[in-house]
Nucleic acid binder design. Structure first.
Length: 437
DNA sequence: TCTGGGGTCCTAGGACCC
DNA sequence: TCTGGGGTCCTAGGACCC
């Protein structure tokens, strides 16, 4: 009884208004900053291995191109309609994101960077008289400083700010800013499909549709017990938020709780040796991130899978979880354990599509728990620092463990990648004066 | 031929203990 | 022949997010 009460969502407070700042078609917008002639033209950006379409300009959306469409299925359609296609360029998007977030943080103190292209802002209630005007101001400043267009939604809760943002983006009359904090949100919720609500995904949406719940407004009207039973506490939290009761606080970023690294191969890999190279490569990448956030890993998972869409061979997926005797950030040690795990789950004769590693049970590096018989770690720490320094300066595989391979033929190529305009000197864009100025 | 990658949180159920 | 019940901890898997 007591504990179930504790798990009931608790309203945080209603002293604040939340704003959600969301970059429009973010990856496409990043590409357009450096290719202005693509303004007003259809553009898409592909996922990591040129696999799926993960970002679309408005013009591409208007052509009916769906999010997540496999590229190979859409390639002909895209070229027929003159759609410009980019491989994803994460150094560029990461840097542009940093610029947008820095600009927002200069304007407001309470900012949560929620994802690469979204930030929540928390504003004291009634601190600002004209929210839409304030939203337009933020919009103009971000645009001017970074070249990225954003939309802004205001609401008394994060969930309502999300919905406000959805309208700001979808309906031209709002011109990128929509405020649900001072008016009744109900008419908007009636026009918002339940599956578009933040926290209601595919599964829940299907379940709710079958119960006749199609809009956010329908959901809001159901009683707490009914929702709790079907959607768990998280669903109930969402519904409270729709009702204007804030249950999800602003969160300042801390170190992450797990770090993953994985990628699909460029071709179907059969040999254990290539899998070992890939595994060692991904462990190396994860360990760099681990040290960057000054954490140690207490647990390592390695997994392996064949192509789940294959019609010629059965699907095989397996993983191995390894608890480390003592938390570590030592690449060599992590590689050694990962390769032991890999050999356990490797089955000869199969063609593999993907492998990956996850580091978890992370703890701060300053509070290292030494085991009684451990060797002194100091030299290993220094070695890792030197490694990171060299690779940061000269490129991420300048020095690496031999087992990670050198040619890495199994890696996927990305054929349509734009230059790293803002993070590599060699890729810096060149501007020429035209004389007509 | 070709279908992404990196995260978080919650729950059910098993293991274990008394 | 009889074979409890309740609490806690941990983990795998599911659902969701971008």
């Amino acid at each position: 009884m007591g504990s179930s009460n504790l798990r009931h969502p608790q309203p945080v407070n209603n002293k604040y208004i939340f704003a959600l700042v969301d970059c429009n078609n973010f990856y496409v917008s990043c590409e357009r900053v450096f290719a202005p002639k693509l303004q007003g033209r259809p553009v898409v950006v592909l996922s990591n291995n040129d696999g799926c379409i993960i970002a679309r300009s408005n013009e591409a959306k208007a052509l009916g191109i769906a999010m997540g469409t496999p590229f190979f299925k859409a390639a002909r359609f895209l070229s027929r309609h003159g759609v410009t296609v980019f491989s994803s360029n994460y150094p560029l998007y990461g840097d542009m994101s940093w610029r947008v977030m820095t600009t927002i943080k200069k304007l407001e103190p309470d900012v949560e960077v929620y994802s690469i292209d979204e930030a929540f802002i928390r504003l004291p209630h009634s601190a600002i008289l004209d929210l839409p005007e304030y939203g337009r101001r933020i919009r103009n400043i971000v645009r001017q400083h970074t070249g990225i267009p954003v939309s802004i939604g205001f609401g008394p809760t994060k969930t309502l700010a999300k919905i406000a943002n959805r309208f700001a983006k979808k309906e031209d009359k709002y011109q990128g800013v929509c405020d649900l904090s001072s008016t009744s949100a109900q008419p908007f919720l009636g026009r918002c499909p339940v599956g578009d609500v933040w926290g209601i995904g595919r599964q829940s949406s299907d379940k709710l549709q079958k119960q006749g719940i199609t809009s956010a407004l329908d959901l809001l009207k159901r009683d707490d017990g009914w929702i709790r039973r079907r959607l768990t506490v998280r669903g109930l939290r969402t519904v409270m938020e729709l009702r204007g009761i804030s249950c999800i606080e602003l969160e300042k970023a801390g170190p992450s709780k797990s770090i993953a690294s994985s990628k699909s191969f460029g071709y179907q890999v059969k040999s254990l040796n290539e899998l070992r190279e890939a595994t060692a490569t991904y462990v190396t990448q994860a360990a760099v991130k681990l040290r960057l956030q000054r954490s140690l890993a207490g647990c390592l998972q390695i997994y392996l899978r064949t192509n789940r869409f294959s019609r010629t061979q059965p699907y095989y997926a397996a993983g191995e979880t390894i608890k480390l005797p003592e938390a570590t950030a030592d690449t060599a040690l992590l590689i050694k354990l990962a390769l032991q795990g890999l050999e356990k789950i490797y089955r000869p004769g199969l063609r593999y599509q993907k492998t990956g590693v996850v580091l978890s049970r992370l703890s701060p590096a300053q509070r290292r728990q030494l085991s009684l018989f451990a060797d002194p770690q100091k030299n290993r720490d220094k070695l890792m620092s030197a490694l990171d320094l060299i690779n940061a300066r000269w490129g991420r595989f300048t020095i690496q463990h031999g087992v990670a391979g050198f040619a890495k033929p199994w890696q996927h190529r990305q054929d349509r990648k734009s230059p790293a305009y803002t993070t590599q000197w060699a890729d810096l864009p060149i501007v020429r004066a035209s004389g007509q100025l």
